[in-house]
Amino acid sequence: MQNTREQPLSPPSGFRPGDLRRKMRLSEDIIEATLFFVGFLTIFITISIVIVLGDQALLFFADPAVTVWEFISSTHWQPAIGEFGIWALVSSTLTTSAIAILVAVPLGLSAALYLSEYASPKARAILKPVLEVLAGIPTVVYGYFALLFVTPILQTIFGENIGVYNMLSAGLVMGIMILPLISSMSEDALSAVPRSLREAAYAMGATPFEASVQVVLPAALSGIGAAVIVGISRAVGETMIVAVASGATSKFTFNPLEAAETMTAHIARISGGDLSYNSVDYNSLFAIALMLFLVTLVLNLISQWVVSKFREQYE
């Protein structure tokens, strides 16, 4: 030991076979266990969501005033007189989401194509942040925009046919809100297509446009499909735009010019008021939320699966 100072760089003298044996490191094990627990906590969140929503939803269906069949088949939702037909809320969720997707998919895809195929680095540096800002604006602000900017414009176009509250305005603005999401996911999909494919097209005498639209775009199609699915899931779950702009009456209609309440807007409105716990009304909200959760869960799972398949294809 006293020699260590004089020979700082020599290997330790004397090797015992036990030196390399695995040692007990209690603190390491505790840390790993803690980290695993923290990671596992996220699963606990999902389980809680299912239990909480499921439990209250069961209470709702257990109520004598409610039947499961009525819930999934009726088109009238009037808790005051004991009518709970989810279609009155689903119809407007479908309508607003469909409008949003019709706006967001073509625009988002075009934006992605422009950014990935045409834009110079300089143009990109300006255009990309615009989309990022759009993505960062709180949805309640989009609600304000829908009600106080888009609706008045629609009123000058459609006149008497359209009310202050309508699904068209909410859907259009929701489309703008989802646009950045679709565009950035599509861009990722486009850039994931290997260079060699693009080069193959160029080598055949394709113009850059032909290469991107006829070769790269079809190759990225499943990734773009995943983007659309996530977009749908976002539209279905979006609350504030519809709560502000599409009206507060549950009504079975697919006419975008009419006012109708979506599933999310209904939950927001009813729970925002004074509602006594454990009433049928209160429990019905959990049944709606459970449906929302399941629908978005399935959509997200499909999208993730598509994306992972897509990645595999090019790895």
Partner: peptide, 29 residues
């Protein structure tokens, strides 16, 4: 671990209003 990862990706896509319902049932009540 695969489940944990998939689950996290899914949680990121759960509508915010559903988190509100979770908060209402667990934290508020």
């Amino acid at each position: 671990n695969n489940i944990i990862q998939t689950n996290i990706n899914n949680l990121a896509g759960v509508p915010s209003i559903v988190y509100g319902m979770l908060g209402l049932a667990i934290f508020v009540r």
